[in-house]
Design a binder for these strands. Structure first.
Lengths: 148, 148
DNA sequence: TTGCGTGCAAAGGTTTTGCATGGCA
DNA sequence: TGCCATGCAAAACCTTTGCACGCAA
């Protein structure tokens, strides 16, 4: 984190560009790898992991580990946006990820810090539950797959 | 649940007993496997996974996937307790898991349901952040601890 | 030139699966 | 007896690591 943060390489550019161009979606290393390969600018898996690790440390990218078999999901984080007010809701049935922009959560965050001495990290915290569509009793999906 | 849920076997009893006796801590499959082996009642890894999977579906056990390398953590859930008001705070630095009993969170839960149409599942939701001890640069709490 | 960045492959880990056997009902 | 449960091992998966080479600075 001190000063210069690495060389400017083709691989780094490709990864960073991909992340910025997909800032609203959650992607896996596999997704990135496949995409870059199709674009004619393939990047080794290990390299992707190494870059993503640094980006997570910097706070440029946030990381979710939903499942060990599925692998980790990464999402680009804009420095300009108020990402500390930006939480996520993840539906346990359809796997959909919903962006939650809500001042109420911000209040809770302050409450937990003031009363419980715990500084919540919105970048990592995910609310699990059931979304509106999946809650409809007409279609009680029991065992759905986990997509992104 | 759908009627009879499997045979009553020694392995099943061992796993269930272990989970109920460790309801306050978070254990991995490896932990369970080692413990049962030491107790003289070894159970195959695959069997543990298969049982745990069913227990998670039933809601008897909750599952956390912190890291792909570390593996999933499982915790027994008591049906009697008001677990729907019981959230968890997990420190990203020392790994400590804190139980949060707070009416404010309950309010947020209702707000999200009413305003955003999303039914939060407290059994699965974990707030990530930094605990009081680790926030002080002088004395960080012990590492790698996963009880709670 | 210096030393980080990269890719390949192997190693490490957790989790799943196939199949023959064992045991509950 | 019928069929689920079990265990073993292999497979599948994501992720990390070692090493030789390439390339930015």
């Amino acid at each position: 984190m001190s000063g210069t943060n690495g060389y400017k390489t083709r691989q780094r550019e490709s990864i960073l560009r991909y992340m910025t161009e997909h800032k609203d979606s959650h992607v896996t290393v596999n997704t990135i790898s496949d995409y870059l390969a199709q674009q004619g600018t393939p990047v080794g898996t290990a390299t992707i992991y190494r870059h993503l690790e640094k980006l997570v440390e910097q706070g440029t990218v946030r990381k979710y580990t939903v499942d060990a078999a599925t692998g980790a999901c990464f999402q680009f984080v804009e420095a300009d946006r108020k990402c500390h007010e930006h939480y996520h809701l993840k539906c346990e049935k359809c796997g959909k990820l919903i962006h939650l922009k809500c001042s109420f959560v911000k209040e809770l965050e302050e409450h937990i810090y003031a009363e419980h001495g715990f500084a919540v990290n919105p970048l990592r915290t995910v609310f699990y539950g059931v979304c509106q569509e999946c809650a409809v009793p007409a279609a009680p999906a029991q065992k759905e797959e986990q997509n992104g």
